[in-house]
Amino acid sequence: MKVISFIRVLFFFLYFLLIASPLSFAQEDLSQSWFNPHRVNMLIFLIFFFAIIIYFIDRAKKGKSLFIRRIAGLDAIEEAVGRATEMGKPVLFIPGIEDIDQIQTVAAMIILGNVAKMVAAYDTPLFVPICRPMVVPVAEERVKEGYASAGRPDAYNRDNVRYISDEQFAYAAGVQGIMLRDRPAANLMFGSFFAESLMLAETGFLTGAIQVAGTANIHQLPFFVVACDYTIIGEELFASSAYLSKEPKLLGSLKGSDLTKAIIIGILALGAILETLGITQFTRWFFIE
């Protein structure tokens, strides 16, 4: 009911903006308008997208089952942790080099919580080298909570979540040092990576560790694909929270964004056909000024 009320309030507000606004679409001076008509397509898309997500969240909360396709990279995390446990070696989790205000780092923290839960259950050491000091307390909390939810709060070692350096290559050198000295059997790299991605992945490859990496930095994906056993590509990184936690609310949002993607593919195909036929009006609806 709360979700439906929220949608009602949202639509009422948008009605006020769109209809009750003293706007003339022909008017170019928008300084007295409460709504920018040139962005109406963006607004419609956002409302549509949000409505789909909220609908699926509501559906998931009611207990309806939602099918989510398998993501090999995320399934491989448990395999990697299991391998490290069998070998009696630690697991290394690298959460990228950007700060906590970056969405990829937030996604990495979500995965870290789940990884911490797994390693706590298997009683395997987990090293988390950090590049940005603001990430340290968040990572510590995530790991601590992971150990607590696995029923092993005593196994949490604060020193294993360690700050290395703010400097990109100093951080890379520090992490490479950990890989070469402690020889972790599993390297999990999730978050925002730049030039250091290949340095870390290649060093991990040389140590023989099983490697799972994921980033939304498209220019670093080829390096991870080459040097890692499994790579989580782009959006799969953001799907990880739902996939790993199986929480209905999160699964609903994942399902919603998948449906939106399918609709976008349909729109792209339709647009390509219409453009080929010389009908340009359809694609003009999607221009943003």
Partner: peptide, 19 residues
């Protein structure tokens, strides 16, 4: 889309890992 969906989850308080 993944970023927008994650932002929506954060704004609505469904996703709280940043805390």
């Amino acid at each position: 889309l993944g970023i927008v969906a994650t932002c929506l989850k954060i704004i609505l308080g469904i996703e709280r890992a940043y805390m």
